[in-house]
Design a protein around this nucleic acid. Structure first.
Length: 332
DNA sequence: AATAGACTCAACCGCAGTAAT
DNA sequence: CATTACTGCGGTTGAGTCTAT
């Protein structure tokens, strides 16, 4: 009944790191005979290893098509995006990164990318803002008045919790709020998300023009969101691209489809996080109905017919904050 | 220079799905 | 159909290396 016993050989099989001699034996055997049955391979190749160990050594290290060296930014980007869709399906992620093994990607994720996301306040499992950062909801004063953060920080719960220095805490706060904005732009249900933004980020902080009617967000189509400006002094709308998980629902299939056409990177690039809305001084102060950034694949377009200084006051303040190289880099 | 702690990554372990008998 | 082996995958480990003190 069933297969014959897999292994009658009870000799002690070697474990641990492979020697160059063992590598040579394995490589030369596979090059001349192919691996065939992994179970039978060690004996045929003269190796005192189990087949599983041979398979692992070959697939993760000796295979000739393995790419060595550091991950590129494009690869990092792909891993993060694919992980947000596929989760810990390392082999499937690796299928989209030629020359990289699932083991290598898994290691890189666990040692680098995961930590980077955590530092940015992003949950590496859900790829959404960490819920424990809700304490940062009322940080408008921190953001609008960084030089006086010291006294403010005394009343900040997180400061006590983290026991961080005020300037460091300010940087963390800024990053979290920015990230919060990006995540909201990424959320399919933009309307409720913007309501949430309204509640958690006071309008006078300068991030959102206070003439945006948050009750009247128009999801014009599946690719963009129109944010109307409807106060008596300003009329117009701002069209921003939606960046949401929906786009990725069929990503895996699409990537499979497009890998053969070498276009998988293009597919992914289209779904990058949106750039900050690009609006020139001319567009904001002089020209009516000027669309900017229309040629960008990942940007949006804005139509304003009045001064938008208010909207960007907060950004400028932050950019002008000379104490924050990290902050400037993040903005860029 | 010595040491401890952090980091990296190759390798192993165990499980699950599939194939063979 | 039941049993067992094979294969692939994801989680974990631990030795070696790097870095900060």
């Amino acid at each position: 009944m069933g297969r014959s016993p897999c292994c009658n050989d009870i000799r002690e099989l070697k474990k641990g790191p492979w020697t160059p001699e063992e590598d040579d034996k394995l490589v030369s055997h596979i090059q001349t005979h192919g691996h065939g049955s992994w179970r039978a391979l060690p004996k045929a190749a003269g190796l005192n290893r189990c087949g599983k160990s041979c398979r692992l050594r070959w697939t993760n290290y000796l295979r000739p098509d393995i790419k060595r060296g550091r991950f590129t930014e494009v690869e990092e980007d792909m891993i993060i995006k694919l992980h947000s869709v596929l989760g810990n399906k390392w082999s499937r992620i690796a299928a989209h990164l030629p020359g990289r093994t699932d083991n290598e990607i898994k290691n890189y994720w666990n040692t680098r990318l995961r930590k980077n996301l955590l530092q940015m306040g992003i949950d590496p499992v859900t790829h959404k803002p960490r819920s424990d950062l809700n304490l940062l909801a009322n940080l408008s004063q921190l953001l609008t008045n960084p030089p006086n953060l010291g006294p403010l920080m005394n009343s900040w719960e997180l400061n006590n919790a983290l026991r961080v220095q005020p300037n460091v805490a300010a940087e963390v706060a800024k990053l979290h709020v920015l990230q919060h904005i990006f995540q909201i732009l990424n959320t399919p249900n933009s309307s409720s998300s913007l309501q949430n933004l309204h509640q958690t980020m006071p309008l006078n902080m300068g991030f959102i023009p206070h003439n945006i009617n948050l009750n009247n967000i128009n999801i014009s189509n599946k690719n963009t969101t129109n944010i109307p400006i409807n106060s008596s002094s300003q009329l117009g709308f701002c069209q921003v691209p939606n960046y949401n998980q929906e786009i990725y629902q069929n990503l895996d299939t699409n990537c499979d489809k497009n890998l053969s056409n070498n276009t998988s990177y293009e597919i992914l690039d289209e779904n990058r996080l949106p750039s900050l809305v690009n609006i020139s001084p001319e567009a904001s102060t002089v020209t009516n109905q000027v669309e900017s950034n229309t040629n960008s694949t990942n940007g949006g377009s804005c139509v304003w017919n009045s001064n938008t200084d208010e909207l960007f006051q907060g950004w400028e303040k932050l950019l002008d904050d000379g104490t924050s190289d990290l902050w400037k880099e993040f903005i860029k």
